[in-house]
Design a protein around this nucleic acid. Structure first.
Lengths: 109, 109
DNA sequence: GCTATTGTTCGAATAATATCGAACTATCGA
DNA sequence: TCGATAGTTCGATATTATTCGAACAATAGC
């Protein structure tokens, strides 16, 4: 499977980052990645359809928030937190510091 | 004209704040308010139709980002930055610290 | 090569947003 | 009371997102 295109961190736009993170599912992905370091797509889809999740991963990737690499048949995702800190210092930490009130996995069922 | 309903700051949702700020026009409104303290709607619409701007002010207001009060025929807007700092510490400063590359007023004409 | 696993892409339906003119409301001042 | 001023609301249109099944692609293991 071909490699993904990740934007240069200097090309990343604040608006796109904010938009990508304004979705509860994507936000929960990012929170989980912040906790666990890196994770496959499968580990992050909480019973949701793969195609939906694939869409969300793409939005996060194109916004410059995550980096995806191939590992066999899996894709491994990780936050680009260090890079994001260069261009938007304090932004991701401020967002991650907010405790999530509603668990996404909860309103899946 | 009747008063606006502003959400309690504790009811404000991170997702809504991020969404509201993911729009370039709304972001430019917030930046301008951060510079100038408070401003009327007219002072913030850069030649755009009033009805469009009214929509954006509403989104910002309902997200808990601005507060609007009446003053004669004008509405005066201000950031709820102190309150936002209570629930999302560091978030607004991190966003406002990002220098805007494209001036919104620029691509108006 | 066959099969299972993991994810992507496509396509179509649905939903949400943005945009802006037109009509309307409220207030101020003469 | 009559503009003039400042915004809001309505309604219609256009654009963009979300969702998810179905088909597809790539890899690992046997």
């Amino acid at each position: 499977m071909r490699e993904y295109r990740h934007p240069q961190i200097t090309e990343v736009q604040l608006e796109s980052v904010l938009y990508a993170l304004s979705d509860p599912i994507r936000l929960s992905i990012v929170r989980q990645l912040a906790r666990e370091g890196e994770a496959t797509c499968a580990a992050l889809e909480n019973g949701r359809p793969k195609s939906s999740m694939s869409h969300h991963f793409r939005v996060l990737r194109e916004a410059g928030i995550i980096k995806t690499r191939n590992d066999g048949t899996s894709r491994i995702n990780e936050l680009r937190d260090d890079e994001l800190a260069e261009v938007f210092p304090g932004l991701l930490p401020a967002i991650l510091a907010v405790r999530s009130k509603n668990n996404v996995a909860e309103w899946t069922s």
